[in-house]
Structures are given as structure tokens and as C-alpha cells.
């Protein structure tokens, strides 16, 4: 059973169908890629999974339990975390505080013996932002902001992690390190879903790739299959006209 199972999710905005019967599985220990042209509905799917946007039909399950009726807050407490394409950092806080907030919030609902301060420090080290830990996030370049969002979402110790274009704004070296980190996270047993435009990164780190076009999944497969799939090529490049 997949950790996160999206089944036949359909979302309409007014008359437009944004998502049309989308199925997606994310398994523990794997990085699942989700790619597609601009406006295909990737971010909408993330918003639906995390409960920020209601769905019209279909179901979303975490570990076999349906989550359709849960608020975003409750879904997060079941082990779902995400980053945002249009960075949603806490701009008034420092890097350390951004992660600490999340660690504290988790401690508030998980009520386990974790020490938020220690969790925070460990994560800062892991994402490699020790040098700027006390800088306000507003002062950081986008690439580092992406890392802060990653660190923040990891502070809730999620089972399923949704990453929305986490590498955009990162330079080549940063992207390389980031890819390695994603593989590490998956190796630890997390189910990672990656929306990303940097195809090289997707092809390098993903075990399985879903392609979304016009709100529909048009292909699922391993990176090599996807690269040569004619439907995918057409979706990206259009039909010769």
C-alpha cells in the first residue's frame, strides 16, 4: 500500500477542469517525480492533497486512511508536509526561527520527548545553512530560501513530503547537493513527491515519474521511459504545426 494514494481526484474552478481524475502513488523510500508543462495542475494537486483547496471528487489517502474531510492542520499532523512554489516563508523571522517554529508546532501536537531546539540545530546543519542561521530569511537568495522551506517542513518529521519546485533559484552546485539530500531522505524511508522543472534533477533522483498535462496524468514510468514517451514529448514540445 502506498503511503500517499491519490485516487481519481477532480477539481473544477468555475467551468474549468483543473484536475481530471488524477491518480498518484507515493511510496516510502522513493522519490516520486511529478512533471508537466506550465499550468498543467501540479501546484493545484499539491494544494488539494494538503487540503488548501477542496476537491470535487476522488479521494486522498494517507496510509490507507482517507483524508478528504480533514483540515490542512489535521493532515499535517497525520504526517504530510510540503514546500511552496511561491515561497511561503515567515519573512519576519530568521532562518533558525523559521525552523524552530515548525519544530515547536510539532512538539505541540506530537507531544513526544523531542527537543525542538536540538531538532532545529540538527536541521540547520543538515540543510547546510549554519552560516546564515541568524539572518532574516528576507535577506537570503531564493536558492537558500528553498532550503529553509525544506528544513521547516522536515521539522514536522513528515512521512510524506511534497516539494514544489524546490530547486528553482538554486545554482548548479546547490542543485547537486540538494538532489543528494533528497535521495538521503528517501533512503531514510520518507515518501518524497517532487514537482520540478529542472528535468536533469528529476531524471537523476526520481525512482518514478508522473507526467501531468491539462489536469490528467498522461504517463507514469521510470525516468528513461518518460524521456522517450511520445505523449510526453508531444505534451512538452507540442505537435509539429
Amino acid at each position: 500500500m502506498a503511503q500517499l494514494a491519490v485516487r481519481g481526484v477532480t477539481v473544477r474552478f468555475g467551468g474549468n477542469v483543473a484536475l481530471d481524475g488524477v491518480d498518484l502513488d507515493a511510496d516510502p523510500g522513493m522519490v516520486t517525480g511529478l512533471i508537466g508543462p506550465n499550468g498543467a495542475g501540479k501546484t493545484t494537486l499539491f494544494n488539494v492533497i494538503t487540503g488548501l483547496i477542496p476537491l470535487n471528487s476522488g479521494s486522498i489517502q494517507l496510509n490507507g486512511a482517507p483524508m478528504n474531510d480533514l483540515s490542512p492542520t489535521k493532515r499535517a499532523r497525520r504526517g504530510l508536509a510540503r514546500t511552496f512554489q511561491r515561497l511561503e516563508l515567515f519573512s519576519l523571522l530568521s532562518v533558525r526561527e523559521n525552523i524552530r517554529v515548525a519544530a515547536d508546532i510539532r512538539k505541540g501536537w506530537a507531544r513526544d520527548g523531542s527537543d525542538p531546539a536540538a531538532v532545529t540545530e540538527a536541521l540547520i546543519e543538515r540543510i547546510g545553512l549554519g552560516a546564515v542561521a541568524d539572518a532574516r530569511v528576507d535577506a537570503l537568495p531564493t536558492g537558500q530560501c528553498r532550503l529553509v522551506e525544506l528544513g521547516r517542513s522536515l521539522a514536522t518529521r513528515p512521512e510524506v513530503l511534497l516539494l514544489d519546485e524546490p530547486a528553482s533559484g538554486q545554482d548548479e552546485n546547490e542543485t547537486l547537493a540538494f538532489g543528494a539530500l533528497l535521495q538521503e531522505l528517501a533512503a531514510e524511508g520518507m515518501a518524497v513527491v517532487l514537482v520540478e522543472h529542472d528535468v536533469h534533477l528529476v531524471m537523476r533522483v526520481c525512482h518514478k515519474v508522473h507526467v501531468l498535462d491539462f489536469g490528467r496524468i498522461i504517463a507514469v514510468g521510470d525516468p528513461q521511459q518518460i524521456q522517450t514517451n511520445p505523449a510526453v514529448v508531444a505534451a512538452y514540445l507540442g505537435t509539429p504545426g
Binding site: P37, N38, L237, G238, T239, P240, G241
Partner: peptide, 11 residues
Amino acid sequence: VEQFASTVLGV
């Protein structure tokens, strides 16, 4: 500027 490259290349 276009993503649908094949289409626009015809024009």
C-alpha cells in the same frame, strides 16, 4: 516565447 516548441517552429 513558447513552451510548445514544435508548434511555433512551424511559424
